[in-house]
């Protein structure tokens, strides 16, 4: 009698522990999905902004057709990309082409004095920052999740319920991979 009571209590405690960990894992997973949705929103916003920018800039840049075409191509590639790795790569390429476009804009004083271009440039910069921040948030959440499913004791629950590691949204940007330079 006594023994069965102790056993019952043990089972209840164990079950409670199991479900609490399971719920925590699910909560983390939902947050990761939410973070991913955030990135997607920002990426879409950037895709929508680029045609406007190209349209505004076109008139001034008779001799920079190449740059503009590259941007358009990179954009359509990014829109079509599916899967985490491909997406990251395509967006990377788009970021680079946009940077070269802005470098060209710097050379045209007329463009720099155009409030519309400046506004679009500001919007794009802002969107790019948002992408970076959303990515940062996503990666932080993924890191938390991945840590949680690997450490003892929650790895027992994770293994039992088939949680697998999530992928990071990585970016192969040269400037970002370098160690931050000390400005002297």
């Amino acid at each position: 009698m006594q023994f069965s009571l102790i056993l019952l209590a043990f089972i209840i405690v164990l079950g409670g522990w199991f479900f609490s960990i399971y719920n925590a894992l699910i909560r983390l997973k939902v947050r990761i999905n939410n973070a991913w949705a955030q990135i997607d929103v920002q990426l879409k916003r950037r895709h929508d902004l680029i045609p406007n920018l190209v349209e505004t800039v076109k008139g001034y840049m008779q001799y920079e057709k190449d740059t503009l075409e590259r941007v358009i191509k990179a954009r359509s590639q990014a829109v079509d990309a599916s899967g985490l790795k491909d997406k990251a790569q395509a967006e990377n390429f788009l970021t680079q082409t946009l940077r070269s476009l802005f470098a060209v804009v710097e050379r045209y004083p007329d463009l720099k004095a155009n409030q519309n271009v400046l506004k679009l440039q500001e919007e794009l910069t802002s969107t790019e920052n948002k992408i970076a921040f959303a990515r940062q948030y996503y990666n932080d959440e993924v890191q938390r999740f991945n840590t949680k499913i690997q450490v003892v004791p929650s790895n027992l629950v994770a293994n039992a319920c088939g949680f697998t590691k999530k992928e990071f949204f990585e970016i192969e940007d040269k400037t970002e991979k370098e160690t931050p330079k000390v400005k002297l």
């Binding site: 939410n34 506004k119 500001e122 802002s126 920052n129 948002k130 940062q136 948030y137």
Partner: peptide, 20 residues
């Protein structure tokens, strides 16, 4: 206002960094 819009963008960015 251009400046205000610019400030709003910055606040939005930080709000994204906080997880939306």
């Amino acid at each position: 206002d251009t400046y205000h819009q610019y400030f709003k963008n910055i606040v939005d960015e930080v709000s994204v960094a906080l997880g939306g």
